[in-house]
Each structure stands twice: as structure tokens, then as C-alpha cells.
Computed example of a mutant assay.
Amino acid sequence: MIKDNHTALSDFILLGYSEFPVLQVLLFVVFLFIYVGIILGNGLTIYVTLTDAALDSPMYFFLRNLSFLEICYTSVTLPKMLVNFLAENKTISFTGCAVQMYFLFVLASTECFLLAAMAYDRYVAICHPLRYKLIMSRELSLRLVTGSLTVNMPVHVVQVYLLFTLPFCGSHEINHFFCDLSPLLELACAEIFVNEVYLFAATTVILILPFFLIVASYVKIISAILKMPSAEGRKKVFATCSSHLIMVSLFYGSATIVYLSPRSKETMDINKLLSLFYTILIPMFNPIVYSLRNREVKVCLKKLFDRKV
């Protein structure tokens, strides 16, 4: 049906920063370096948490899945971006654009719920330490991860369907690095009220709800930390949560501005930059933040490198 409704429009053009042709090779090198760093860093996190028995806990099970998600997440957009930096033809097919957007939305939304699951894990570990193993069983951890993915899939089928059944009868140049919702809505030449209502409802459920669950978990965690008699104990407990708080702040801060701020021509370029932040830079920071700020991971990495040496 989507294909039949758009026989006149076979592809889109991803503009990116094509207005600066002298920067294309430099951008290719920088983004290639970032992509390799994302794969190596998150791949190493997955390997260490899988092979070291000391990291066999729900906390590292969630971290392993987050790292795998980051690799998939960036692989949806970055390879095509790298090709476009060097190619004169910066087109993406109509179907390819729809598929790219769908998987981008599903994986980004899954990360929202996965971050909420990690916050709940920290809440149980700090506020109910004696019941931690009983509550955070392997079965519950697996259900939280699979549920984070499956709950988003039908939501974004509707989202993408509503968007790509709109007529795009004007320009087909997308002012972005990849297929995203806001720049595509700007190209539609039909009423987009239904799309905006659905976007608001989906954003509320997928972005705001997990955020409030995270906030509620950390309100309980901070309350428990403040009741601890030992300053050293408070510092140690807070250190276990700081990495997660950093990632939540970076991810939610940039994504909220992009998807909840009013659309205008002035904000399009800002949102284009911010979208790079939460789709590319945060996956690169993930292994750095969790590894360099986590004593157990650093010990396991040191043992791994010692064995290799």
C-alpha cells in the first residue's frame, strides 16, 4: 500500500552537511573512527560480562544487553552516513527510509525501557539488598529485556505506517543525516494532525513513562543513601549509580529536546546536531563511562589484558 501510494517518489536525498563539500572526507574519517570505537568498546563490554564469572549478575546482564543494543542502534544509521559522506549520490530508497526509521525508533525506545530496568535493578540492590537475588531473578531480568523490545515493535509499526502513507509531493530532500520523523513531516503536503497526536502519545508512553520510573527509583535510592551512617558507604553506593545517571542524563536530555520541542526552521539544524549526539556519541560513551567508572569491570578488564599479554 505504501509503495502504491508513492509511485512517483522512488527515493529521498539525505542532505546531511552536503553544503560543506570540503568537510566530507574529514567527516567520513571522524565518523568511521567513532563507529569502529563503538563496535570495539561495546563488543569488549559484552565479551567481558559474558566470560567473567565475577560479573554474573543482573546489573551486568542489563549492561551486556545495552552494549549489544548500542551496536545495533548505530549500525542502522552510521553505515549509510559513511557512504553518503563520499558518494555524490546521497539517495535512500523510499522503502529503505521506512525500514531505517522503524528500526531506529524500535531500538531507541528499547533503550529507554532498558535504562528504566537498570534503574529498578539499582533500586532493589540498594533498598532491598537481602531480597535482591530473590527479586531480580534471571527470569525477571530476561522478561524485562525482552519486554523492553516487544512492547515497542507494534507502536512503531503504526508510527511509520502513518508517516509513509502521507503524500510527499514537494521536495524529497531530507535535511538530516538519516531518516527521522520531524524532517520527513516537513516534506509532507497533507494534514499531519493525526501524526502529531500519535507522536505525542507515543512519546509520552515511550520517553516520559520510563523517565518517571527512573526518577522514582532514584528518589528511593537517594533516600536510602542519606540514611546510611557511614560516609564511605554512601560514597561507595553512589559510585555504583553514577555511571547509569550520566547515561540517562545524556540520552534523555538530547532525545527530549529533539522530539518534544516545537518544530521550526530555526530548531531543525540544532535538532540535527542533537540527534547525532544520542544516536552516535552516547553509544561511544557507554563503554567508557561504565568501564572507567566501575571498579569490578576495570578489574576484569585488567585480568583479561594480563592473560592476553
Rank of each mutant, 00 (worst) to 15 (best):
T256F: 15
H128V: 01
A125S: 12
P167Q: 03
F193Y: 12
L142C: 14
L27P: 00
F113C: 13
H176P: 00
P287T: 06
C97S: 14
L26W: 10
F238R: 07
S75C: 03
E70F: 12
L104I: 06
K3A: 13
I225V: 13
F33P: 03
I92T: 04
Y218I: 04
S67R: 09
L273F: 15
L115V: 00
L50M: 12
L32D: 12
V237Q: 11
I92A: 01
M59I: 10
Y35R: 01
M247D: 08
Y47H: 11
L78R: 09
L26Q: 12
G37F: 01
R295F: 06
P79N: 10
R122W: 00
T7R: 14
F94W: 01
L274C: 02
S264N: 12
R138M: 08
G16R: 00
V248E: 02
S223G: 08
L82E: 11
C179F: 02
V248K: 01
L63S: 07
K235V: 01
E88N: 14
L134C: 06
L26A: 14
E111C: 11
P167S: 07
T49H: 03
T49W: 02
T7Q: 14
K272D: 07
S223R: 09
P210Y: 03
V22F: 13
F168G: 01
S242N: 08
Q100K: 03
I192D: 09
I214W: 02
P79K: 11
A239I: 03
L69W: 04
K308R: 11
M118A: 14
F178R: 04
I288M: 14
E70M: 15
L66W: 10
E186W: 03
A231Y: 08
T51I: 07
I221N: 00
F168Q: 00
L213R: 12
G43I: 03
L40F: 12
I222G: 02
C97A: 14
I71V: 11
G16D: 03
F285E: 09
E88S: 10
A53P: 00
L292K: 10
